[in-house]
Amino acid sequence: MISQLLLLAAVTFGAAFIRGLTGFGMAIILVPLFGLIVKPTEAVFLGILLQVLIGPVGLKIILADAHKQSALLISGFAVLATPIGILLLQHTTPDVARLMIAATAIGAFVLVLLPQRGALRPGPKETALTGFASGILTGFAAMPGPPVVPYYLRQPIPPEEARASMMLVFFITAITGTIASYVLGLAHARLLWLSLLLFPSVLLGNWIGAKCFGKVRANLWRSFVAGVLGVAGISAVIRLLN
């Protein structure tokens, strides 16, 4: 039990560092790797809880820098779709769930590599579809990021705006995922206590990552984001095959 907790804490620290630096990535890294240590349903709920706990940290800056119109529209559709994702998870076998979660991380990597769009922001239809897909993935894998990250990173906007907008969406979807998980019976008290034990690792990793943000050029930051997605997806597949 102690060794398992230490392993979970180490993974949590690394994922939280990525979150602090890029604005996303915690769940994309946590859930596939957690799912190899605990059951996929437990990994998903732990990922959701840890995002709720870290969400208020730096919220004032997030609200100041985020593009609220798009972030709130995405979050609204994600709230509606999250219970669908949880129901899908509950009716999926663990091995299939692990494979689909790993595939989701790789899919996000591919989307980020697509060329940037023009100066115009995405329209309401694309924004709504992004939110709906994000909600399903929140419930199924605690990973709202794969649709949201390409949505913002493919726009020619400053990293500060992209990072803050993603963080705002992820905080709202994490709250929704927590409530829906309790209502639909995915959560239990042991996972709540485990998330509290892991929270110091999240705080430390996120703090160090946030300190590093802004010290690299925008193009290098975007390349690092893409690399994080790729490594997370490939690592999950390799561990799953082993």
Rank of each mutant, 00 (worst) to 15 (best):
G85Q: 12
I54F: 03
K60V: 07
Q90E: 11
I106N: 06
F13Q: 11
L8W: 07
A10C: 08
F109S: 04
G85C: 11
L80S: 10
L80I: 15
P32I: 09
R98N: 06
K125D: 10
A43H: 04
L49W: 03
L88N: 09
K39G: 12
T22A: 15
P122L: 04
R117T: 13
K60N: 07
A78P: 04
I18K: 04
I106C: 06
I86D: 05
H67C: 08
L36G: 09
G58L: 04
T82I: 07
L7F: 10
T22E: 08
A128W: 01
T92E: 10
D65G: 04
A119F: 05
G118E: 01
A27T: 07
G20C: 04
V57W: 10
I86A: 05
V79G: 01
E42I: 15
L113Y: 02
G55L: 10
L21C: 09
G131I: 03
I101N: 06
G58I: 01
L6Y: 11
D65V: 01
V31P: 00
A128K: 08
V52Y: 05
G118Y: 00
M100E: 10
V44G: 02
V57Q: 04
G58S: 04
G118A: 10
P122Y: 04
A108W: 00
I106Y: 00
I28L: 03
I48T: 15
F132E: 08
T82W: 06
Q116V: 05
L87R: 03
Q69L: 15
M26A: 12
I101R: 04
Q69H: 15
L50F: 11
G107L: 06
I28Q: 00
P83H: 03
L87F: 08
V112Y: 06
M26W: 00
I28M: 03
Q90G: 12
L33F: 02
L72P: 05
D95N: 13
I18D: 03
G14R: 13
L36H: 15
L114I: 04
M26G: 08
F13Y: 09
L99F: 14
I61W: 12
A105W: 00
G131P: 07
A102G: 12
F132H: 11
E42L: 14
M26R: 06
P124S: 03
V11W: 03
L63P: 06
K39T: 14
A15E: 06
G25V: 06
A78R: 04
L8K: 03
R98V: 07
L6Q: 12
H91D: 07
T92M: 11
L21N: 08
A16K: 12
G118M: 00
F17Y: 12
K60I: 05
T82V: 09
L129P: 02
L99V: 15
L7R: 11
R98H: 11
I84F: 13
A16P: 09
F77C: 05
L89M: 07
P83C: 03
I37H: 12
L88T: 09
L8A: 07
H91A: 05
A66S: 11
A66Y: 02
V57R: 05
A119T: 15
G47H: 07
P32T: 08
V44R: 01
L88W: 14
G55Y: 14
L111V: 11
I48D: 13
